[in-house]
Design a protein around this nucleic acid. Structure first.
Lengths: 341, 341
DNA sequence: CGAATTTGCGCAAACGTTTGCACCAATCAA
DNA sequence: TTGATTGGTGCAAACGTTTGCGCAAATTCG
């Protein structure tokens, strides 16, 4: 026994398929008696409408595509979770694809999802730079078709929207706080090179230094990728310096937690000997040892908003980009610079 | 300009739609010259086949549904990541839904995905117990249609498969190891009550105790949900005991990391005063302070296998359930019991 | 050289819906 | 009574593919 279709019900009820279709949609042109009868029959026969057939005719799949760099990143997961909840309550389902941080794969994933006729797309922490507009026009998209919303990123273009946090401001806040604690040599562990948020946070770091009258030393910014593994490498590089920093701002919490682990392993006291600040405020940051001072990103809000914006655009409404503020969460990985150092 | 369809190409090439369809499929009945001509035209016009139209006629969407308790759980995310990669290389896309650990929502998600005509379903850490078979027959599924594979769970039924780790054995291994280190009072932080893996790990804990001639004290198993937040509560409960444990096995790494944080906060030395073992070997467990001794689950393997099994079943091949072994990963959260205690 | 086969392509049905339009019967207003 | 309106329903096209079948032309075979 295969799926029961609308014509099966029509046959059973002795009416036409169109009547069944209309009855199930509560079309007023169907008499209430028939409607109830048909609905009862449908329920009894366990009818479930085929979304694919419906999509074919309506041209709308009620599906949003979400492509991420890596689900394994707690920031990404948190955004996805909220996006899933929001889309579900709106009657949408999520098609999921992962790019593994490869811009090529990211674009490929977008194309794949478009082939599946997603109504809109959400890209979390995308790395495809200016190529979104290109792929959009290549797909023959008018400004009104399949909105693309970029989370934690920003690119101009018709039908391309973004929701992000003010990365620069967050970093500046962190630096200012560290300066107030007496720190003068503050390092930075950078994020993935292609990421827009990486650049912005680095920029914020620089501006923060300048605004606080602190000197920027190139050796104090070390490369990274926003991963746990960054921590040990970064710590080694930083501690090898003639004048090691007394505080460090990391691209994200993952790198910061990696740094914490490396410090503990090296027998270095945090925050006594080194203050550490992360970025994102992932749930784990409250449970690191010591608990991590960090800059919050309203991840759930971002996820929720990303689908809201998608839906709004689909609805033909004007949608404006949003950039939220991320506040500094004070925990125990930062402290006053002891006078001795 | 909307999407270019097969008939547009047919018109441009001066052939029929069926010829175009066949040409693109490399059907041998189309002459090579025509085929190349059509392919070139299709490429030039930017043709991308509509998967939904295709699905309607073939009855196969090349889509797998994956429903999880919570993407935010690193174990789940790790499994999903591998599943996504595997399905992508097999030409399948993933439809994603989250249950938020609610069995009702989990079933609802399954129904939703079925309406979308997914070819198969993967449920990670499902909590719906015996109701999978029920929903399967309600959907009029024959044993051959939409395979359902359960990750980190097991249920009998036609078309229902499972890939899991031997939870009991893993727990026993942990207890045996702790006993070898001299521990005699070993506590357990339990997982979510409805989870099958919770029950099995608890059972393994009990059997491990018994097998090592250790006494089971009910007060030494405390409730939890497999979350970071479990840690502080569990530690408080355990340390309030007249004879507090010298070691503790946790349902998963998250709870263990929470426990580590709580211990640090309480000024308690791990492992000197308390040995801690987790379960899952999530990436973070290598970066906790101290690094966590844990029982590995081959998460990537499980994700990969889950889609492989799905595809195998779809292919009509017989598929057998698999249960993997999870080895103990020794790190620094466990140590020899100091003689004084 | 005629018959049988092969090659290359088009027709049309099918998948399961939605929806514009036409149609008939009943009701209503005049 | 007649004409117009309304209420209820069915017909058929459409969405974009795939695929069984049929048919003509070209090729092969005896």
């Amino acid at each position: 026994m295969t799926q029961v279709s609308i014509t099966d019900i029509a046959a059973a009820a002795g009416v036409s398929a169109s009547t069944v279709s209309r009855a199930l949609q509560d079309n007023p042109r169907i008499s209430p008696a028939r409607r109830d009868e048909i609905k009862a029959l449908a329920a009894q026969m366990g009818y479930r409408p085929s979304q694919v057939a419906r999509s074919l005719v309506t041209g709308c799949t009620h599906t949003l595509g979400v492509v991420v760099t890596d689900v394994t990143d707690p920031f990404v997961a948190e955004v996805m979770k909220a996006a899933e909840a929001a889309s579900r309550t709106a009657g949408y389902t999520l098609l999921f694809a992962s790019s593994d941080r490869d811009p090529e794969r990211e674009l490929e994933a977008i194309r794949l999802l478009l082939d599946r006729q997603v109504d809109g797309l959400i890209v979390v922490s995308g790395r495809a730079g200016p190529r979104y507009a290109e792929i959009r026009s290549a797909a023959g998209a008018t400004p009104a078709t399949w909105p693309l919303v970029l989370v934690n990123n920003e690119q101009a273009g018709p039908g391309i929207y973004s929701v992000q946090v003010d990365n620069r401001a967050g970093a500046i806040r962190a630096i200012t706080y560290l300066k107030a604690l007496g720190h003068r040599r503050i390092a930075f562990v950078a994020g993935p090179e292609r990421g827009r948020s990486s650049r912005e946070r680095l920029e914020g770091y620089r501006q923060g230094l300048a605004a606080n009258g602190l000197e920027l030393r190139n050796a104090q910014v070390v490369g990274g990728a926003g991963l746990l593994e960054d921590g040990p490498r970064a710590l080694a590089a930083l501690m090898g310096l003639a004048e090691p920093p007394t505080a460090v701002l990391c691209y994200n919490d993952l790198a910061a937690i990696g740094l914490l682990a490396a410090a503990a392993h090296a027998g270095m006291k945090v925050p006594a000997e080194l203050s550490v600040i992360g970025y994102d405020n992932i749930p784990l940051s409250a449970y690191s040892v010591p608990p991590l001072t960090t800059i919050d990103q309203p991840k759930a809000e971002m996820g929720r908003l990303s689908v809201a914006m998608c839906l709004q655009a689909l609805d033909g409404q004007p949608v404006s980009n949003v950039t939220l503020e991320g506040q500094l969460i004070l925990r125990e990985s930062t402290t006053q610079l002891s006078s001795g150092v």
